[in-house]
Design a protein around this nucleic acid. Structure first.
Length: 221
DNA sequence: TGCCAGGCCGGGT
DNA sequence: ACCCGGCATGGC
């Protein structure tokens, strides 16, 4: 990867960090909570996920065995505020069923698996796609995997670092081949992109005031 | 009021 | 290989 790309991505990082400060991601107390949140936040505002997490905690259900053993209808009701709740209840179940079966619900053992192998395993679970898998690896496991999301693609596209046909794995590869494989860096970088995107890079929002505004834009939103 | 949110899946060309 | 609709709550 070109040093120009590396320089640009580093400059983006510095500009966002200077503007926002550290984001302290993932907002969760345990790896299990990260994983549950990663599934619940699919195409959903984080605010709504928080409500669902509160419900699960209050019910003492934020635990893989409870999640696996409680009636599906009950789980569905607890996570209702997160939206697409029937779909997500099944997705949570498919994860915990797999996790108990393959790793006896042991987080340490799961993350002791080689990262490429584990990623493939996660992608094999119904309802876990690339972003969710990478979020689990990075934010629950502390592994140096770059997480790409809609904001990442939109921001890079607007700055002409990618074209509109770039897919998830290409964008992920762009970061991973341009930056050192440092989990702390990847953690903060993705969080800063989301923070920047929420404020300045929604589909039809203006970019004014964005910390990345000093860098060239040649593509209009 | 409509559009959007830290996606993913399944069915149709 | 693409493209698209469905899923669904809550905020602005």
């Amino acid at each position: 990867m070109s040093t120009r790309t590396t320089d640009t991505l580093r400059a983006f990082y510095e500009a966002m960090l200077a503007a926002w400060g550290p984001q302290h991601w993932w907002p969760a107390e345990t790896p299990t909570e990260v994983i549950v949140g990663a599934i619940l936040t699919q195409n959903t505002a984080w605010r709504n996920v928080e409500r669902a997490i509160v419900n699960l905690k209050r019910a003492g259900a934020l635990d893989c065995r409870r999640l696996g053993d409680m009636p599906l209808d009950q789980l569905t009701e607890l996570i209702r505020p997160a939206g697409t709740y029937r779909v997500k209840a099944r997705r949570l179940r498919s994860f915990v069923d797999w996790f108990r079966q393959c790793y006896d619900a042991d987080i340490e053992r799961m993350f002791a698996t080689p990262v490429d192998t584990l990623r493939e395993q996660l992608l094999g679970i119904h309802g876990i796609g690339r972003e969710t898998a990478d979020s689990i690896l990075l934010y629950a496991g502390g592994l140096a995997t770059f997480v790409v999301d809609a904001y990442t693609a939109r921001i890079l596209y607007r700055h002409r670092l990618i074209d509109d046909s770039a897919d998830y794995d290409e964008i992920k590869e762009l970061f991973e081949s341009s930056l050192p494989a440092d989990p702390g860096l990847f953690n903060e970088y993705h969080a800063l992109l989301v923070r920047t995107g929420k404020q300045h890079c929604r589909p039809r929002a203006r970019c004014s005031g964005c910390p990345l505004e000093p860098f060239e834009h040649e593509v209009s939103p």
